[in-house]
């Protein structure tokens, strides 16, 4: 018979067991979010395809046509931008959704128990499903542009997993502070917007170093998303160079933030209900 002990600062072991027991719920949350999102829309699921393409076209226009980053690019510039947007969107969505987890799910959390980590896991899963669709679109783009990728493309999906978790855990870190300071929720979209330009989405790390300035490159380097975004682009675009520096820095962010965010989140979720 299942035995549960409830006490102040309860045992971690029990929590992780529960998390496993409730794993289906994360899937259900993701399913709910996706189903609800396109209910009563005319194009429906098509929006999952149109949105990233529109974003890509805007970025291509700004950075390719206006800023001139597309000059002498070895691959179709639209494809490069799209490949950069895939990991970036996954990261920013996971981050945004995870950071709002306490605020958006407050009503539910006040009435029913489930390991609270389930809801950010569910929302990250939602972003991952969107990413899978975008990935498919990217493959079609390759066919259209007659672009033959290298075998590195097989590695690309693997790169997305640390990207998702990095976004989620950074978001969890922020979520803890949103309980008391709702103001943070207002800042996050702005942060994400800035982040999109401070990440080598439409350009490569090399472009920044050579065309902008080494100081700007430093700012890109500390950006946690830079390494995984570059690495993903390296998988897709065969002429890209693997940037070890930024990759290791991204990896370090991940390694450091998983335990810190988990610890803070676990502490916050215990009594979060009493504070809202």
């Amino acid at each position: 018979m299942q035995k549960t002990v409830i006490e102040p600062n309860g045992k971690s072991f029990q929590y992780w067991k529960d998390l496993w027991r409730y794993r289906e719920l994360a899937l259900n949350f993701a399913k709910r979010d996706i189903t609800v999102r396109y209910k009563q829309t005319f194009i429906g699921f098509g929006w999952s395809i149109i949105n990233p393409i529109l974003n890509m076209l805007i970025m291509t226009f700004i950075f390719g046509n206006l800023a001139g980053f597309s000059e002498n690019s070895a691959a179709p510039y639209q494809l490069i931008v799209y490949a950069g947007l895939i990991p970036w969107t996954l990261f920013s969505r996971s981050f945004t959704l995870a950071s709002g987890t306490f605020v958006t799910n407050a009503e539910l959390m006040k009435k029913v128990y489930f390991p609270r980590l389930i809801s950010p896991l569910g929302s990250s899963l939602t972003s991952l499903i969107d990413t899978a669709i975008s990935f498919g679109v990217m493959l079609i783009m390759m066919l259209i542009y007659h672009y033959t990728p290298s075998f590195r493309l097989l590695l690309a999906p693997v790169m997305l997993i640390p990207m998702m978790f990095l976004g989620m855990f950074l978001g969890l870190f922020v979520s803890v502070f949103t309980i008391k300071y709702r103001d943070l929720i207002q800042i996050i979209p702005l942060l994400v917007q800035i982040g999109q330009y401070a990440t080598p989405v439409a350009y490569s790390m090399n472009d920044i170093k050579t065309k902008v300035s080494p100081t700007a490159a430093l700012a890109f380097l500390v950006n946690p998303a830079t390494g995984f975004v570059s690495a993903f682009k390296w998988c897709v675009i065969k002429t890209e160079v693997f940037d070890w520096h930024s990759f290791l820095i991204s990896f370090a962010w991940l390694i450091v933030f998983i335990p810190i965010a988990t610890k803070l989140f676990r502490k916050a979720e215990r009594t979060f209900v009493d504070l809202v």
Partner: peptide, 8 residues
């Protein structure tokens, strides 16, 4: 408390 929504 019994439904584990908050901790004692």
């Amino acid at each position: 408390l019994i439904s584990r929504i908050t901790e004692p």
